[in-house]
């Protein structure tokens, strides 16, 4: 790291150090290098300097601490101002021939994304580097997300970023992402782990974005899909709210569609709950009784919900 300081001239900068004579609660024993880097960062950040050396400095600090929102925010300002002069525009990233970013070192950013998947500054940062009307950008983001989800299939930030990528491509790109491959991706993940609720949530997002379930034929196919997944384990919590939402949103006979699936799984609390919900009030007491037997630890809730 010490070599770094020789790459640029810092003589004109007066570093700003924290006064540690008081206010020492939870003080971290920083390395001398980190302390020095933060001292210079405060100085150039405070002065609003947009330079190559400042850009290099942010990279040094991020290497030690990728969760530093301040540094990411500052880096973004610099990149937006001078990034294109420093980096090759549309530089090819680590993620196979994709993920170009305006003014940023795509290779470095991708590597960092893969190294620190739980970090959420990075996803937000990537969104700020959007290249509108560049299909490679959106495809590249999908590839990056898939990389992360391979190791961590419920990573909240990665899923959130994927939803953002889809919406933005539809809004800002004349060759946007397509429904079919994304739907196929949820098929694959749900097939691998039918309890992956993030994949279910993404599937619902897709159908909200592309309302293809308005067609009766597609809707029937989807209901069948859910039914098959419920059959794998009827106690799985994920498909039930999904099914209810799909019925409510797209089925002209929401209650009877839901009920027709639920009655196929007798003596199961999740199914019975759906049956009870779709029954006339006077029949609910009997179902409530049964639910209290099946899930006694939720008896208060069942009695509250079905008013019995």
């Amino acid at each position: 790291m010490s070599l770094f300081w020789e790459d640029y001239n810092w003589d004109d900068v007066q570093p700003v150090f924290e006064d540690n004579s008081s206010g020492k609660l939870a003080a971290i024993a920083y390395s001398d290098e980190y302390k020095k880097a933060m001292g210079y960062l405060r100085a150039v950040m405070g002065a609003g300097e947009h330079s190559e050396r400042a850009l290099a400095l942010t990279k040094q600090i991020i290497a030690d601490n990728a969760a530093h929102y301040s540094v990411w925010d500052y880096r973004l300002d610099i990149v937006k101002n001078i990034g294109n002069d420093v980096f090759d525009y549309r530089k090819v990233g680590l993620v196979k021939s994709h993920a170009p970013t305006i003014g940023e070192d795509g290779e470095w950013l991708n590597e960092l994304t893969l190294d620190t998947p739980k970090n959420y500054q990075i996803w937000n940062y990537r969104q700020h580097l959007e290249i509108k009307d560049c299909p490679e950008y959106y495809n590249g983001e999908v590839v990056a997300v898939k990389f992360i989800l391979e190791d961590d299939p419920k990573n909240f930030h990665a899923w959130s970023h994927l939803k953002w990528t889809v919406s933005s491509s539809l809004k800002n790109c004349s060759a946007p992402l397509l429904l079919e491959p994304l739907l196929e991706y949820t098929n694959q993940l749900i097939q691998e782990d039918v309890f992956n609720n993030s994949a279910w949530s993404f599937r619902y997002f897709l159908y909200q974005t592309w309302p293809v379930l308005k067609s009766a034929e597609t809707l029937d196919k989807e209901i069948l899909f859910v039914e098959e997944k419920i059959a794998m384990d009827p106690m799985n919590e994920s498909p039930w709210p999904y099914l209810k939402a799909v019925c409510n949103e797209f089925s002209p006979n929401a209650l009877s569609t839901l009920r027709s699936v639920a009655i196929k799984f007798p003596d199961n609390a999740r199914a019975l709950e759906a049956v009870a919900e779709t029954s006339p009030a006077e029949e609910q007491a009997a179902y409530c009784q049964k639910l209290c037997e099946l899930e006694n630890f939720r008896a208060n809730y069942w009695r509250y919900k079905f008013k019995c």
């Binding site: 971290i28 024993a29 920083y30 390395s31 980190y34 933060m38 030690d64 601490n65 990728a66 969760a67 530093h68 929102y69 301040s70 540094v71």
Partner: peptide, 8 residues
């Protein structure tokens, strides 16, 4: 120094 990621 292991707490460095909490610097922010």
């Amino acid at each position: 120094s292991g707490f460095i990621s909490l610097d922010a």
